[in-house]
Simulated scan of single mutants.
Amino acid sequence: MAELVHDHRELLLLAEGSAPAGRYRSAPFRRHHEQIAGMVAELAPDVDAAYVADLLLMAFTPGLFDFQRTERGWDVNRIKRGLDTLIAGIGAAEGADEQPS
Rank of each mutant, 00 (worst) to 15 (best):
M1A: 10
M1N: 03
A2H: 03
E3D: 13
E3K: 02
L4M: 09
L4Y: 05
L4I: 04
V5A: 00
D7F: 02
H8C: 02
H8L: 10
L11I: 07
L11C: 00
L12F: 05
L12I: 03
L12K: 00
L13E: 01
L13P: 01
L14M: 12
L14T: 13
A15R: 09
E16W: 02
G17V: 10
S18M: 04
A19R: 00
A19S: 12
G22S: 06
R23M: 11
R23H: 10
R23W: 07
Y24S: 01
Y24Q: 01
R25W: 00
R25V: 02
R25Q: 11
S26Q: 01
S26F: 01
S26H: 01
A27S: 15
P28Q: 13
R31S: 07
R31N: 08
H32I: 10
H33I: 09
H33P: 09
E34K: 15
E34G: 15
E34V: 08
Q35N: 10
I36W: 08
I36L: 15
A37R: 10
G38N: 01
G38K: 07
A41E: 14
A41S: 10
A41C: 08
E42C: 08
E42I: 05
E42R: 06
E42M: 15
L43K: 04
L43R: 04
A44S: 15
A44P: 11
D46T: 03
D46Q: 11
V47R: 08
V47T: 07
A49P: 12
A49K: 09
A49W: 02
Y51A: 15
V52D: 04
V52Y: 02
D54K: 13
D54G: 04
L55T: 15
L56E: 01
L57K: 05
M58Y: 03
A59N: 00
A59W: 06
G63I: 08
L64M: 06
L64G: 02
F65L: 06
F65M: 06
F65D: 08
D66W: 02
D66M: 00
F67Y: 11
Q68P: 10
Q68C: 12
Q68N: 08
T70A: 13
E71Y: 06
R72S: 10
G73H: 05
D75S: 03
V76S: 02
V76P: 04
N77L: 03
R78Q: 07
R81Q: 15
D84L: 02
D84Y: 07
D84E: 04
T85H: 03
T85L: 13
A88Y: 09
G89L: 06
I90C: 00
I90R: 10
A92G: 00
A93V: 07
A96Y: 03
D97E: 11
D97G: 05
E98W: 06
S101F: 12
